[in-house]
């Protein structure tokens, strides 16, 4: 474990908790893409199937459990509890256009052709594009609440920190996982446009508005 990965994980955890609290306290999921949250729940489910078979550390196991519980709780709040506030008209990104190609790629490019490894690879590829419905929704509505922007900043920042973690691990212990690195770079690049707007706008207290 290194500081980049630890801060990255905490940023990820903060993002997940922040979104859950926002939906819960405002009792509304307006402006939130349910599809992205469904994709994140799928990402955690397919990535952490080894939760019961391999033990890395208390930290690793407890974070996996927290991520999975929060992901399903968020999906539950969006699609069940506060379903009436879910914005169907703007959450229209065709998620199947992400899941199907990513599923095919996971079969073609992976480290090991075993069910657990293919599902892990699927999860890595899917996570890199899972935010697209949310970014698409913001570009359609033309704006995002500031809390949603903070959520996206933490979420985007976590994988950017992971890239630094991978650089650190490569030079300090010769570890590298090309699949995770390439997917992580794609994921972080998708946030660049948002990062620019966040830094130039939200920090100064303006509302974030993506070019529609």
């Amino acid at each position: 474990m290194n500081v980049f990965r630890l801060v990255g994980d905490l940023s990820h955890l903060l993002a997940i908790i922040m979104l859950l609290k926002k939906i819960w306290s405002s009792r509304s999921c307006a402006g939130i893409s349910g599809k992205s949250q469904l994709l994140f729940a799928l990402v955690f489910t397919t990535r952490y199937l080894d939760l019961f078979t391999s033990f890395i550390s208390v930290y690793n196991t407890s974070m996996k459990v927290i991520y999975i519980l929060c992901a399903y709780a968020t999906v539950y709040l969006i699609y069940v509890k506060f379903k009436a506030t879910y914005d169907h008209n703007h959450d229209t990104f065709r998620a199947e256009f992400l899941v199907v190609p990513v599923g095919g790629l996971a079969f073609l490019v992976n480290h090991d052709f075993t069910p657990l490894e293919i599902l892990w690879t699927f999860s890595i590829y899917l996570e890199s594009v899972a935010i697209m419905p949310q970014l698409f929704m913001i570009s359609k509505t033309g704006e995002a609440e500031s809390i949603t922007s903070h959520y996206l900043f933490c979420l985007g920042g976590y994988r950017a920190l992971y890239i630094i973690n991978w650089l650190y691990r490569f030079y300090s212990e010769g570890f590298f996982d090309l699949i995770a690195i390439v997917a992580g770079c794609v994921q972080t690049i998708l946030y660049c446009d948002f990062f620019y707007l966040y830094i130039t706008k939200v920090i100064y207290g303006q509302k974030l508005s993506l070019p529609a």
Partner: peptide, 10 residues
């Protein structure tokens, strides 16, 4: 080496 057998990252 590529350590893909045991994914130790979240």
């Amino acid at each position: 080496h590529v350590n893909e057998d045991m994914h130790d990252e979240l």
